[in-house]
């Protein structure tokens, strides 16, 4: 009975080490393959761009081994001259980042953070500069007021307000509603700072947004002349 159990342990160990070796070999092979693909993309950049059939096959190959073809094309572009295509590609990435971080930052992100997040998303050896990110932002101007670049105390920020009329409630908006239920219906900049540690910029951004979409009413007559921002469903509550 004992020897059987010991045998089983040994078999399990051997099995596991075989699996480990197999998977590390595979990922090494994949890495080699990916870097070969990068080189391939760099060498054949012109053909990939010009020849539609060639590009389709290339994209399929990228998908098969888990490489984002957009990234590769960006890489390819950056190694040549930085064209509109390159910035357009970056802009797509910026939209993705803004959307995925919106619920955390309320749609306000500094260009510095945006740049470093952008850099982090690349698996190919592609270095981009902050200026590249801000140049790419200009391509988003055409999409209306969704992406605004603001200068706040000498720093560039990007304000992402999402698709017009989107009913989604952000994390920050939810936090404001939460605070309203404690105070009997309103928030102030001071309350947001004391309870959540939000700085002026973040609080103002959310509050202004919510005023613009009719989610908050302004009241200039709080105690000591302090502005209060009221949640209007209060009117219909009993």
């Amino acid at each position: 009975m004992n020897s059987f159990s010991a045998d089983r342990d040994i078999y399990l160990k051997i099995g596991k080490s075989l699996l480990d070796r197999h998977s590390s070999e595979l990922s090494a092979q994949l890495a080699v393959f990916q870097s070969a693909l990068v080189n391939f993309a760099a060498e054949n950049a012109a053909t990939i761009k010009k020849n539609r059939e060639f590009r389709d096959k290339f994209t399929k190959m990228c998908n098969l081994i888990g490489v984002d073809p957009l990234e590769l094309l960006l890489f390819v572009d950056s190694s040549l001259k930085k064209t509109d295509d390159f910035y357009m590609g970056l802009a797509v990435r910026i939209v993705e980042i803004c959307q995925s971080t919106r619920d955390i930052n309320g749609g306000l992100i500094s260009l510095k953070e945006l740049h470093s997040r952008l850099q982090d998303t690349f698996t190919v050896p592609l270095q981009i500069k902050e200026e590249d990110a801000s140049a790419a932002l200009r391509f988003l101007d055409g999409l209306g007021k969704g992406y605004e670049t603001l200068t706040i105390s000498d720093q560039l920020w990007v304000k992402f307000s999402g698709p017009a009329g989107s009913g989604a409630i952000s994390y920050d908006e939810r936090k404001i509603y939460e605070l309203c239920t404690f105070t009997g219906g309103f928030v102030t900049h001071r309350l947001l700072r004391d309870n959540y540690g939000w700085d002026q910029v973040r609080a103002k951004s959310v509050i202004d947004d919510m005023i613009r979409s009719g989610l908050l009413w302004v009241d200039s007559q709080g105690p000591g002349g302090q502005w209060q921002y009221w949640e209007p469903s209060w009117i219909s509550q009993d």
Binding site: I211, S213, V218, W230, I235
Partner: peptide
């Protein structure tokens, strides 16, 4: 009416629809 006791009712609202 209840809105007469809603503090922001006494401040002109900025959002044009709300106003």
């Amino acid at each position: 009416p209840k809105i007469h006791s809603f503090p922001p009712f006494y401040t002109q609202q900025q959002n044009s629809t709300v106003r």
